[in-house]
């Protein structure tokens, strides 16, 4: 049987939280035994939306990463569960916590590196994302979160369907997975997760004008790799897609101005150099 994967394009996620809410709409107050019992009204996030705000005013960027259960091929929760069959993998690859067999010992909770498991105090069981298996079995082609996504940032389907796209993304360096993917082998793939940026705005304090067309060169101090860009009609320059925790040198050269250099720019955080005055 074809195994399923989630493909989530972070570059297309607008942060509407519909995925997080659709999951609640499906599972709060609805009993889908034997796949899942109702989740409590609040407090569980079988799909958890996360937000990232980076930079400083006005160079601020945001992205959102929705995190469902990763339905790992090497699921730590299955490993940790002491009861035979209480957590199992279906033929389609989805990992299910059996609400009948679960005794609420919570060993799986501690084992999951993705915080995907939740304890229901009233029912004394652990619960999590089921990939809406009960709907798939009824003929739906995708779970609720994917169905509601207004931009098709979230996709779901047979692994084979996405092979080519995943291979291309991997080659382009735009494919990632969460956590220690080598160990857990998650079935959730992410595209276009932003890396770090370095940016600034160039202006001439004497003339009170922005400086357009300045050549900006960013050099990775360790590898020597260079990136170049030019400041635009607003005086802005951006270097995006930079690896985290690198150290760079930045050189700004504009005709009629003194060269400006930054010796040590670290991408532990995104860097907004602010409004940079160039001297004549």
């Amino acid at each position: 049987m074809a195994k399923k994967v989630f493909l989530i394009d972070v570059g297309r996620c607008n942060g509407c939280y519909s995925c997080q809410i659709a999951c609640k709409d499906e599972h709060v107050g609805n009993d889908w035994s034997p796949i899942a019992k109702p989740q409590p009204d609040t407090g569980q996030f079988w799909l958890r939306q996360t937000e990232y705000v980076r930079g400083t005013v006005p160079k601020v960027k945001m992205h959102y990463i929705p995190i469902p259960c990763q339905h790992c091929d090497e699921a730590p929760c299955i490993e940790a569960c002491p009861i035979e069959g209480a957590i199992y993998r279906r033929d389609d690859g989805l990992v299910i916590v059996d609400p009948e067999k679960c005794t609420g010992c919570r060993k799986c909770l501690l084992s999951c590196p993705y915080d995907a498991l939740f304890f229901n105090e009233d029912l004394n069981i652990v619960q999590k994302c089921t990939g809406c298996a009960h709907l798939l079995d009824e003929g739906w082609s995708v779970p609720r979160c994917v169905d509601i996504c207004p931009t098709q940032a979230m996709r779901f389907g047979d692994e084979e369907e996405f092979q080519e796209e995943l291979a291309k993304a991997k080659a382009a360096g735009t494919l990632t997975q969460l956590g220690d993917a080598q160990a857990t082998k998650p079935r959730v793939y992410y595209l276009n997760v932003p890396k770090k940026f370095i940016g600034g705005l160039l202006y001439d304090p004497a003339e009170k004008e922005i400086v357009k067309g300045a050549k900006c060169t960013l050099t990775d101090q360790a590898s020597g790799e260079k990136h170049t860009t030019q400041s635009d009609g607003f005086g802005d320059f951006w270097f995006e897609g930079l690896e985290e925790d690198r150290t760079f040198t930045l050189t700004i050269e504009a005709e009629g101005f003194q060269t400006k250099t930054y010796d040590k720019l670290d991408t532990t955080q995104d860097v907004n150099l602010g409004e940079i005055a160039l001297g004549r």
Partner: peptide
């Protein structure tokens, strides 16, 4: 908004 950004906005808009 800085003076230079206002000028830049005006010029980009006109161009």
């Amino acid at each position: 908004v800085s003076e230079w950004t206002i000028k830049a906005l005006a010029r980009e808009w006109a161009s």
